[in-house]
């Protein structure tokens, strides 16, 4: 607990607690549409947080994170589809498969000294390669997709039914909301704690200057690999959630490069290399997108939404190149005290 809030101004800590409590209370007030948008926000925040571990903290650019979403979704989805195993059991193979894939790509890339744009391209190449393989793999449905059975959308409100809904992830939307919201908070806490350990400081050192970090005796390969594996596992959790929330899986859409890009836009907009940047960015961009969707329907012009989205992104990066959170944090006076100050 101490290391969670150490150095954080009291008002920031209270503010955070209030926001989280409000988010937990949201389903009492909102249902239907608003709740489904909130689910999307939290889902993207989880993915963003995962990507941020790798890029924001350890400085390794990945443009192929859709690979880990897809692997997580298909690992758990296939187990459910073929053997009826639930999501929480499916999470284990999802972690293993995504982590192993991350380790493989990381090892190949870092071992051969591939960095920056080249490494990013390697991640895209693997994601696309796996997408094409999955498109031709009959056991998981290939390009015609895999569909998970949807059942008990409405559940009885007794403890056993609710527990069952959470355990099987088959139930109304608020069940999914609580799962992904808790996932988001868990990711936040995990990353916060990680960044207070030796590993976190090693990552920052590697991000700032890899040669210097190596000269200081940090095993650069090991810690970069660790960043990729942790990031891949967190992303795979998002993938498992995606599988059970959407119930339809197509390699074409789940491994698509659009998905890899979608999840990192929020992080850059929110503030790369910060804890709350990914969350703020995910909420801001999702609501912006939803607002624009409505406007687009209103005016009935296809393409208006994404065009404005592009303009908004350019505006934010022009005026707040470090992202929204560092600016907002200063505005609210919630800057963290440096441990050495």
């Amino acid at each position: 607990m101490r290391s969670l809030f150490e150095g954080v101004p009291a008002r920031a800590a209270w503010g955070l607690v209030c926001v989280i409590v409000l988010l937990y209370l949201a389903p009492l007030v909102f249902g239907g549409y608003v709740l489904s948008v909130l689910i999307l926000c939290c889902y993207l925040a989880v993915l963003g947080q995962a990507w941020n571990v790798m890029m924001g903290f350890a400085g390794q650019l990945s443009l192929g994170h859709a690979l880990y979403i897809g692997l997580g979704a298909y690992a758990s989805g296939a187990l459910f589809f073929h053997f009826g195993l639930g999501p929480w059991i499916g999470l284990i193979p999802a972690f293993i498969v995504a982590g192993a894939m991350g380790a493989l790509i990381g090892w190949l890339g870092f071992r051969f000294g591939i960095r920056g744009v080249y490494f990013a391209l390697l991640t895209i190449a693997f994601a696309e390669f796996v997408r094409i393989l999955f498109d031709h793999w009959g056991w998981i449905g290939g390009s015609s997709g895999m569909f998970l059975l949807v059942q008990n959308r409405n559940i009885d409100m007794d403890a056993a039914s609710i527990a069952n809904a959470f355990w099987t992830l088959r139930g109304p939307n608020w069940v999914f909301y609580y799962v992904i919201l808790t996932g988001m908070v868990a990711c936040l806490v995990t990353v916060r704690l990680l960044m207070r350990t030796r590993v976190g400081y090693y990552w920052l050192a590697i991000r700032e200057d890899q040669e210097a970090a190596q000269a200081m005796g940090i095993n650069v390969l090991r810690y970069k690999l660790l960043a990729v594996v942790i990031s891949a596992m967190m992303t795979a959790f998002g993938g498992v959630f995606y599988a059970f929330y959407n119930n339809t899986l197509y390699p074409e859409s789940i491994f698509s490069i659009d998905r890899s890009i979608e999840l990192l836009l929020g992080v850059i907009i929110g503030g790369i290399g910060t804890l709350f940047g990914p969350i703020l960015g995910a909420f801001a961009l999702t609501w912006l997108g939803e607002g624009l969707s409505i406007t687009q329907e209103w005016f009935d012009i296809a393409g208006l939404k994404l065009l404005t989205y592009g303009v908004a992104m350019l505006a934010i990066i022009l005026f707040r190149p470090a992202g929204l959170w560092p600016w907002l944090r200063r505005l609210l006076g919630m800057e963290e005290r440096r441990p050495d100050a």
């Binding site: 850059i268 907009i269 994404l306 065009l307 989205y309 592009g310 303009v311 992104m313 350019l314």
Partner: peptide, 12 residues
């Protein structure tokens, strides 16, 4: 991000 923004604007 800048070029992704340009790409979005061009496409749409």
């Amino acid at each position: 991000l800048v070029l992704i923004g340009v790409a979005l604007i061009l496409t749409n």
